[in-house]
Design a binder for these strands. Structure first.
Lengths: 232, 232
DNA sequence: GACTTTAAGTTATCTAGACAAGTAAGGCAG
DNA sequence: CTGCCTTACTTGTCTAGATAACTTAAAGTC
């Protein structure tokens, strides 16, 4: 077993016993001295625990110990916002960008439109208690509701659609994967490039069961896990 | 944007255009020379794409371009083995370890037994076409079927239970997360410590809807994604 | 031919040093 | 007191080099 793995294991034990969420580890240089290794080797050890969701790096501040992730139910009608309000957390959403883009193969298949035709793309960032949690790309067909969407600024997108367009969306199909963040993901979610993300691709349908929205969410896996009840 | 991120972006484009699954990239040293950077910087760039599921590192051989992941449906009755046979792949399972362990809080909660009471733990490794795909920890209550379980050696565990114990398991509750592999995960799944894994924790019930198995799967996210149909 | 050894080429790990970039707190001018 | 600047400390990135571990194929041995 590599030295950095030994150190990661040792640190993991120490954290679970002597630290609680919100506390900061000693500086990398100090830890490197304690373990008698180069700072790069110690960084590698910390990277292991960051990847497992135990620690969060904050440039200029230090390495923080995290708490257990929020469990997020995945029903057909499950709403990000409502779920979190129930827990007592303060969920917010912020519009980053609104534009038209050419539909990729995946998007056109999901929305049942021709490939390379244009769609409206909404890029939003979701927070829990001022911590960025997920980056979401919403895709809608062009059409009557496009102008209304242009007025969206913040808060739940699905709530907005319900109020201004009288459309209630339901989750119809979801594909779940995991990946490391791109440079853009890292920047928006304020995580280093080694913390894994959950990737959710959802097709949401309107009351007539017609595909209305295709969304791709990149979610910080140290903070959130998905929960699923299977019907009998 | 950091140099290694620029290189990752450049490589990603090149791969999607000029490579197909199974091909190998030029050696790190060559690529480092091409981009005029130190080999460590180029490694960091490759790490980005490994994390995104585009590439697979193989010590001593090189860096291989991967194909798109297998999509694995997650119904109540979904079976790893049957799903893959339908696709035309060759799924196998191998027993790594069988022992009794003390139930953690998570396990005892899932199986509805007292905390720290003992359970039977089966550790299995699943392959698709001789590639290790997931590492699974199965947990069962002690009891009448324990001896039968002791005879399990390979193939689908659920199939084995059906044939030898006449028990048909159904997925009742699933929690999905993502994390980087531990040292043990890396070794069993033959992946470096930077490729993210999907983590599936499932409670499986018998015909009387009683919790019978609690399993924890660590799945290579570059190879598999989970698919979910939501009922109306 | 079958097996072993060797060599070359590859990725993996560790060390060492430098500088950039971000944070926080104290000191200072207004 | 407020606002700005400086300074110290932290993490992030890049370079450079050495050695270990692993894979493959060719050369050698029986």
């Amino acid at each position: 077993m590599a030295r950095y793995q030994e150190i990661a294991l040792s640190l993991e034990q120490e954290i679970s016993q002597a630290y609680h969420a919100g506390q900061y580890l000693p500086a990398e240089q100090r830890l490197a001295e304690r373990y008698q290794v180069n700072r790069h080797t110690l960084r590698r050890a910390i990277d292991e625990l960051v990847g497992k969701g135990w620690l969060l790096r904050q440039q200029g501040k230090g390495v923080m110990v995290l708490s257990k992730p929020v469990r997020y139910p995945l029903h057909a009608g499950a709403k990000f916002t409502d779920n979190l309000l129930n827990i007592g957390a303060a969920p917010t959403s912020q519009l980053l960008n609104l534009c038209r883009v050419d539909a990729s193969e995946r998007i056109s298949e999901a929305l049942q439109i021709p490939i390379a035709s244009q769609v409206v793309q909404l890029k939003t960032l979701r927070f829990i208690d001022d911590t960025p949690v997920s980056l979401v790309f919403h895709h809608f067909k062009l059409g009557e509701h496009e102008i209304a969407l242009g007025r969206y600024q913040e808060g739940s997108v699905h709530q907005f659609l319900k109020q201004h367009c009288h459309i209630t969306l339901k989750r119809q199909h979801t594909v779940i994967g995991a990946q490391l963040p791109s440079a853009n993901d890292s920047a928006c979610l304020q995580v280093p490039s080694k913390t894994p993300l959950l990737r959710l691709q959802s097709i949401n349908v309107d009351q007539q069961h017609q595909p209305f929205e295709f969304s791709v969410s990149h979610i910080r896996a140290e903070l959130v896990e998905l929960s699923l009840e299977h019907p009998l």
